[in-house]
Nucleic acid binder design. Structure first.
Lengths: 151, 151
DNA sequence: GTGGCTGCAAAGAATTTGCAAAGGG
DNA sequence: CCCTTTGCAAATTCTTTGCAGCCAC
């Protein structure tokens, strides 16, 4: 397994960018590993606070964009109020998402057929495909039921 | 051209849901047609204000989620500060994007096969599919050539 | 030793909400 | 008529920012 330590990956990224490796940044990455797979920034803040970490809310907010750029996080969908969800993508197989517009349930799926067609599209345009980002939006079964019941 | 009138599409949606067709909601859809293809909620608010529309900011915010669910709008990228961009989708004129990571060329494409598979995925999970957001990332032919030349 | 990083708390924005009045079906 | 929708503006909530001291390099 080539799964590398995410803390190390982030440090490598920071060094490449001439930024500094700090205890706070390490702690934030550790928090990502403890937090649920799909999470909000506030979840990380809460986790750190509960552990008595020295990393503050502001530092978390300042670090998240770096983590996204480093490839450790993906931006997910938005919650009412404009808050974002993120996904910790380190060391996991690629997958796409099916999201409920109502309750924001987030189902992961991998569809070989779609990926193959993507390769076709890229090739048709002469592109060498590197990656993709696919979100499907819809209404989940539960919310559909509520709808008919009189939601 | 099979493109249906978006106002009518929205009204149909509202009726299906037992919601009401109002002048304000019509005006918001009209504003979408005037606003640039990718826009922010505040752009719509500004457009309506400039026209002296009776639709207020609150109403716009309350209507946008309905438009997304109705399939007339797609959620686009997020801006710093948590603000969203939206995209006005004309019925079946929907398209996805193929982006070059080097030169940021942005090609639009529509691949029926992918869309059909998406419907399958959604159905398999019991979801009613409303929309999707797909970006392919790669290297365009020109940049590939430069690469080999010694980029 | 230097320049980036951090915490704190207040500022800044975007979005939501409550309530009474107006209007669609 | 009943129930949804609306406007207004305050409230809520997420995110950014300014500054002084600390710390990685």
């Amino acid at each position: 397994m080539a799964t590398r330590d995410p803390i190390r990956m982030f440090r490598d990224y920071l060094r490449r960018k001439g930024l500094r490796c700090t205890a706070e940044r390490d702690e934030i990455v550790q928090a990502l590993q403890r937090t649920s797979h799909h999470f909000r920034v506030e979840d990380v803040v809460a986790d750190l606070a509960a552990r008595g970490s020295s990393a503050s809310r502001a530092t978390v907010y300042r670090t998240v964009p770096l983590l996204v750029e480093a490839g450790l996080l993906c931006v997910g969908d938005a919650l009412p109020g404009g808050e974002f969800t993120y996904e910790f993508v380190h060391g996991r197989d690629h997958h796409d998402h099916l999201c409920c517009l109502r309750c924001h349930e987030r189902i992961e799926f991998a569809e070989r057929g779609i990926e193959l067609l993507q390769i076709d599209v890229a090739r048709h345009h002469g592109y060498r495909l590197v990656g993709h980002h696919l979100d499907l939006f819809g209404i989940c079964p539960k919310c559909q039921a509520l709808e008919q019941g009189g939601g």
